Simulated assay, not measured.
Amino acid sequence: MAAEEVREFERQRPRLFAIAYRLLGSASEAEDAVQDTYLRWSAADHGAVRTPGAWLTKVLTNLCLTRLTSARARRETYVGPWLPEPVDTTGSALGPLDTAELRESVSLALLLLLERLTPPERAVFVLREAFGYGHAEIAEVLDLTESNCQQLYHRARQHVASERPRFHPSTEERVRITQLFLDAARGGDLERLRSLLADDVVSWADGGGKIHAARKPIRGAERVAQYLGRLSREAAGVGFVLTELNGQPGVVATVDGVVLLAVALDIAEGGIATIRIVANPDKLGFLTAQLV
Score class of each variant (00 low, 15 high):
Ala3Thr: 15
Glu10Leu: 15
Leu16Ala: 08
Ala18Tyr: 09
Leu23Cys: 00
Ser28Val: 07
Thr37Trp: 04
Thr37Leu: 00
Arg40Gln: 12
Arg40Asp: 10
Trp41Met: 02
His46Asp: 01
Thr51Trp: 07
Ala54Phe: 13
Leu60Pro: 09
Leu60Tyr: 10
Arg67Trp: 01
Thr77Glu: 13
Pro81Gln: 05
Glu85Thr: 09
Gly91Arg: 13
Ala93His: 07
Ala93Val: 13
Pro96Leu: 06
Thr99Ala: 07
Ala100Gln: 14
Thr118Arg: 11
Leu142Met: 03
Leu144Asp: 03
Leu144Ser: 09
Leu152Pro: 05
Leu152Gln: 11
Arg155Ile: 02
His159Arg: 12
Phe167Thr: 10
Phe167Pro: 04
Pro169His: 07
Leu182Lys: 15
Ala185Lys: 10
Gly187Val: 00
Leu190His: 08
Ser195Pro: 07
Ala198Asn: 11
Ser203Pro: 00
Asp206Glu: 06
His212Asp: 15
Ala213Glu: 07
Ala214Lys: 03
Ala214Cys: 01
Val224Tyr: 08
Leu228Gln: 05
Gly229Gln: 05
Arg230Asn: 12
Arg230Cys: 04
Arg230Tyr: 14
Arg230Thr: 14
Leu231Val: 13
Ser232Lys: 03
Arg233Trp: 10
Arg233Gly: 06
Glu234Gly: 09
Gly237Cys: 04
Gln248Ala: 15
Gln248Gly: 06
Pro249Asp: 10
Val255Lys: 08
Gly257Asp: 10
Ala262Trp: 11
Val263Tyr: 01
Glu269Trp: 04
Gly270Met: 08
Gly270Leu: 04
Ile272Lys: 02
Ile272Asn: 03
Ala273Pro: 09
Thr274Gln: 14
Arg276Ser: 12
Arg276Ala: 10
Phe286Glu: 10
Leu287Glu: 05
Val292Trp: 12
